[in-house]
Amino acid sequence: MYETTYHRPASVAEAVSLFSNASDGRFLAGGQTLIPTMKQRLAAPSDVIDVGKIAEMRGIEVSGDTVSIGAAMTHAEVAASEAVRGAIPALAGMAGMIGDPAVRHRGTLGGSLANNDPAADYPAGVLALGATIHTDKREIAAEDFFQGMFSTALEDGEVITRVVFQVPEKAAYAKFRNPASGYAMAGVFVARMKDGAVRVGVTGASGNGVFRSSEIEQALLGSWSAEAIAPLAISPEDMLSDIHGSAAYRANLVKVMARRAVASIA
């Protein structure tokens, strides 16, 4: 790893100011992607600004129809939270499926979203639940946030502080893990919102990163059942194709995961 300078700011304002003074700064949340990347010398930030312990980026609040989760909350904390398990059990369940136990003890919600790995789980949940991403500067709707793999609406030096999720009527997540790496080859988060809208977020499968499947949404709007998805032919266009699976295989996995997710709560 190349040399770097580590900072642990106490507030979001201090973190942002440290970033603007750095020649090539990077925010560090749980570090479960950034640190391995630095070890491989694929990233060499001059300054690492640790936002993982900032108080205003912590905590979980449920109020009415929303769940607000601090960006620095770890996957293990979200998975174990009684508040999240009560309001959106599918979200807590999904957090408990990320990586492995030791990774879940450090990795964070904000870090996962800012990185926007095409196989990350959280983006599917954020998109399906119509979440709003709060930063130090503004609020960004999930639709506008994800902009292709490893790419987001965040500007340089902008920090995610909280994510506010809508509580759905019901929701579920199913993923097919790559048997070696454990990463999602297809992960589908289905949600029926309280106003009747259906939202489906798909991760792991597309070359463009996380996306909403309008075909599956339309089918579920007609009838909320696994059978409604069965006749669909998901297009393999834009799907990833690599040694782990062809585009057609991944397109089929998306359908199968959507059916499993719906069946798990039908």
Partner: peptide, 8 residues
């Protein structure tokens, strides 16, 4: 439990 190779 944490991976000591993945924290400073």
């Amino acid at each position: 439990a944490m991976k000591s190779c993945t924290m400073f």
